[in-house]
Computed example of a mutant assay.
Amino acid sequence: MDALLERARAGLRRVAPAEAAALQAGGGLLVDIRYAALRERDGTIPGALIVERNELEWRLDPTGAHRVPQATGRDLDVVVVCNEGYASSLAAVSLRQLGLHRATDLIGGFQAWRTAGLPVQEQAGQPAPPGGTAGSRREAGP
């Protein structure tokens, strides 16, 4: 798995949280692929599109019948966000294979975004974590 991840990342120019925020501010699309339990526990990035991993390619293919309105073309800046930056690398490669040549992922995932002090929207009914952070729970993988 480590070798697969290394090969996937070799073809990406991954972005840090501040650059992801700048891309979003400039019209790029942040796509949160974390599963619901993580979003409920930790919150979400304001303005990020929520698309769980198993639907990602169908929703972001700009020529597909099941695409979201935000999937406007192959030149769209797309930053895939997972919990800690592992699954998002593989997902970004998959989007590139669909022709979204600007797809990349967020180094360190949602946890790095939050640690950088960037905005996080708490989920309805979710108590704010003590000290503004929640304990880290890893996705499958390192």
Rank of each mutant, 00 (worst) to 15 (best):
A16C: 00
E122W: 07
A103F: 13
L118S: 12
W58K: 13
F110R: 02
H101P: 00
T72W: 00
R67N: 01
L60W: 06
R53N: 08
V15A: 05
W113A: 13
G99D: 00
Q121M: 10
N54V: 04
D32L: 15
L23A: 09
Q121C: 07
F110K: 01
S94V: 01
A87Y: 00
A37R: 08
E57G: 11
G47E: 09
V93N: 05
N83C: 11
D42Y: 15
R102T: 11
V78Y: 09
R67I: 04
A22E: 11
V81C: 08
L29S: 08
S89E: 08
G125M: 11
A36L: 08
Q70I: 06
G27L: 06
G43R: 05
G73E: 04
G47K: 00
S94Y: 07
L23F: 06
P17V: 07
S94D: 10
Q97A: 14
A16M: 08
A36P: 15
G85I: 09
A112L: 10
A87F: 01
D42R: 11
A112F: 11
G73P: 05
T115N: 14
R39D: 11
G85Y: 12
L106T: 01
P69I: 08
P46F: 09
D75S: 15
G27F: 05
P119R: 11
A103H: 05
V81I: 13
I33G: 13
Y35M: 13
G47C: 03
A103N: 02
A22F: 01
T63I: 00
L76D: 01
R102D: 11
Q97N: 07
Q24G: 08
E19V: 13
D42G: 08
E57A: 15
V78N: 05
A48Q: 06
A87G: 02
L90D: 00
D75R: 14
A116V: 06
R39T: 11
A92G: 02
V68T: 04
I50W: 12
Q111L: 15
G28Q: 03
V81L: 14
P46M: 06
T44Q: 12
A18V: 03
T44W: 10
N83L: 12
R114G: 04
D32K: 14
R13C: 01
S94Q: 13
L98M: 01
G109P: 10
D77Q: 07
E52F: 06
W58R: 15
S88H: 03
E57N: 11
R67S: 04
G27V: 06
L30Q: 00
S88E: 05
V79N: 05
D61E: 10
G73V: 07
A37T: 01
E122H: 05
V120H: 05
R102G: 10
V79Y: 10
G43V: 07
Q70T: 07
Y35T: 09
G117K: 03
R114V: 04
R74F: 15
Q70N: 05
R59W: 05
Q24F: 06
E52K: 07
R74W: 12
I107S: 14
S94W: 03
A65W: 12
Q123L: 03
L106H: 02
L106D: 00
H66Q: 15
A37N: 04
E55Y: 11
Q121I: 02
R13I: 01
S88K: 02
G47Y: 03
C82N: 08
